[in-house]
């Protein structure tokens, strides 16, 4: 069990630091997708620091596709920590002199695909996983989707194809923060839920869990059946970690002002004080 281990405590601390770093970047630009990054932080961290295997060069051998492209700040800060992106890259975020935009761009170090338009990443991830399979690679492809994104028909084309192609080397996550542009996803599409049974009926293994509970996420993926594609449906809170952002729609795209920024830092410091040293 990972719970209450040093590994799990380190993950908690890392996730607080990712939030701090994202908030710091938010003070450089007028708008940035803070809340959609905060909802998937623990799951993205689980991929990079709990699940992916590293090659001899210390860099990940496995692949991660951020299909909900507006969550990419979560990935940028981890790629910075891994030395795949530089501090300067993040300092120049969304500026003409830099290379990082608000959505992932293929060709940027560590970025597997150009996403941002929803409904593309899972099909791409299926193609990558299939090519790996027939070329004899044991790489695992991870893919992060949004719950609103799951409404795209193209996602369901990919959901249909993945088990047909035998993609047991594909692990997808649904960041189920229950928000989309015009409201709560469960209110706009009440008959779309629950999701797990639908995925299972399409030939996937599906696990419904707390997407902020790092040990549970990591163990669920490590202990997967392994003969089917896996979808982790992570129940999350949009804006998780900063009280005034949690479940408040405006933080999809607003940057905090100076007072709000300080309050956020204070809250993160208080949370860190609760982690065993």
């Amino acid at each position: 069990m990972l719970r209450n281990t040093r590994e799990a405590d380190e993950a908690l601390r890392r996730c607080l630091n990712w939030r701090r770093r994202i908030l710091a970047v938010s003070q450089q630009v007028s708008a940035l997708h803070v809340a959609p990054a905060f909802s998937c932080i623990e799951m993205v961290d689980a991929v990079y620091f709990g699940l992916m295997r590293n090659g001899p060069d210390g860099r990940p051998m496995d692949a991660f596709v951020m299909s909900k492209g507006h969550g990419v700040m979560a990935q940028y800060v981890m790629l910075e920590h891994l030395g795949i992106l530089t501090r300067g890259d993040l300092d120049d975020y969304c500026t003409a002199r830099g290379k990082l935009g608000a959505h992932p761009d293929y060709g940027t170090p560590g970025i597997e695909a150009s996403t941002g338009s929803l409904g593309h990443g899972l099909g791409l991830a299926c193609g990558m996983a299939y090519a790996d399979r027939i070329q004899g690679s044991d790489r695992v492809t991870y893919c992060m989707l949004g719950d609103g994104e799951m409404q795209e028909g193209s996602v369901w084309e990919a959901i249909m194809m993945a088990p047909n192609l035998g993609l047991s080397n594909l692990v997808a996550f649904c960041d189920f923060n229950d928000f989309q542009g015009l409201g709560r996803t469960r209110e706009t599409h009440p008959h779309f839920y629950p999701l797990a049974e639908k995925l299972e009926s399409f030939g996937w293994e599906a696990i419904d869990l707390d997407g902020h509970d790092w040990p549970t996420v990591v163990e669920a993926v490590r202990n997967r059946q392994g003969n089917k594609p896996l979808m982790v449906i992570g129940r999350t809170v949009k804006g998780k970690g900063v009280s005034y952002m949690e479940n408040v729609a405006i933080w999809h795209y607003r940057s905090p002002n100076q007072t709000e920024y300080q309050q956020a830092l204070d809250e993160l410091a208080a949370a860190e004080a609760g982690i065993p040293a």
Partner: peptide, 28 residues
């Protein structure tokens, strides 16, 4: 057979698959 895929009546994933496969070095 491994280099032939029929997506059925599903053209969006037909393109998505070819893109992902090309990103892994195939020429689909």
């Amino acid at each position: 057979p491994r280099r032939f895929i029929n997506t059925g009546v599903a053209e969006q994933v037909m393109i998505g698959l070819t893109a992902g496969m090309a990103q892994r070095g195939l020429r689909p």
